[in-house]
Amino acid sequence: MLWVKAIHVIAVVCWFAMLFYLPRLFVYHTMSDNQAIKDQFKVMERKLYRGIGTPSLWLTIIFGLWSVHYAWEYYVSSTWFWIKMALVLTLVVYHHICGYYLRQLSNDQCTKSHVFFRWFNEFPTIILLASVFLVVLKQPL
């Protein structure tokens, strides 16, 4: 069981690496006026999203559910767990919104500014903080 949790945590770290870095690439992409640099960002963004982010998303979900099934009765009756699941679902939606912006940028059709993406980039940090506090503080010390 501990190896399942370990893989879940590793997948979460990899997924968050993408959630933090991809919107930062969007910032630089939208700031650039050089087409060759924009084309390089397109490659980097696609590889990050498809090669790291999406597989990490699926591993996070699979190994998270696998971990939960060991003590389903406990989790299903815990309010903190359902709040955390709502936060995870929110991140899954955010992940797909990143994919939407990635497609727009790859087709040179994105109208969002670098300022928008600077703010957009902060959202996963808030979700991470809330999730970590929920998990760590679920029981009194």
Rank of each mutant, 00 (worst) to 15 (best):
I10R: 02
T79H: 11
S131Y: 05
W3V: 03
A86C: 13
L89I: 15
M44K: 15
W66L: 09
W82I: 05
K138D: 13
F16W: 12
L22R: 02
I126W: 13
L134P: 01
I10K: 00
H96M: 09
M18T: 15
P140E: 12
V27I: 15
H29M: 09
Q40G: 12
V92H: 05
I7A: 12
V12H: 01
I126P: 00
K112C: 09
L128I: 11
L137S: 09
F117C: 03
Y28K: 10
I7P: 02
L87H: 11
E45L: 06
I127Y: 01
N107Y: 13
S77C: 04
Y94P: 07
V4C: 02
E45Y: 02
Q139E: 14
C98T: 05
F116V: 03
C14S: 14
Y28R: 06
N107P: 01
V27W: 05
E122T: 09
D39V: 00
S78C: 10
R50W: 11
A17V: 13
M31L: 15
R24D: 00
F26Y: 11
L141F: 12
W119S: 04
Y28E: 02
V68E: 02
A17W: 03
G51W: 08
K47W: 12
F16E: 06
V115I: 10
V68D: 03
M44H: 14
H69L: 15
F26L: 09
I62M: 08
L48M: 14
Y94E: 08
R103G: 00
Y75H: 11
V132G: 02
F20R: 04
Q104Y: 06
H69P: 00
L129C: 06
L102W: 11
T60L: 04
T90D: 08
W58T: 01
I127C: 10
T54R: 01
P140M: 15
S56M: 07
G53K: 02
F116A: 02
F63K: 01
K38L: 09
F133H: 08
I126Y: 08
S131A: 15
L2Q: 15
I7W: 01
L19D: 09
L65I: 14
N121P: 01
S131L: 07
K42C: 11
E73N: 14
D33N: 08
I62N: 04
F133I: 15
W58A: 12
S77M: 12
K84T: 00
H8C: 08
I62L: 15
G53P: 03
Q139K: 11
H96I: 03
F117S: 03
L128H: 00
L2K: 10
H114Y: 09
L141W: 10
T79Q: 12
T79A: 11
V12D: 03
W58V: 10
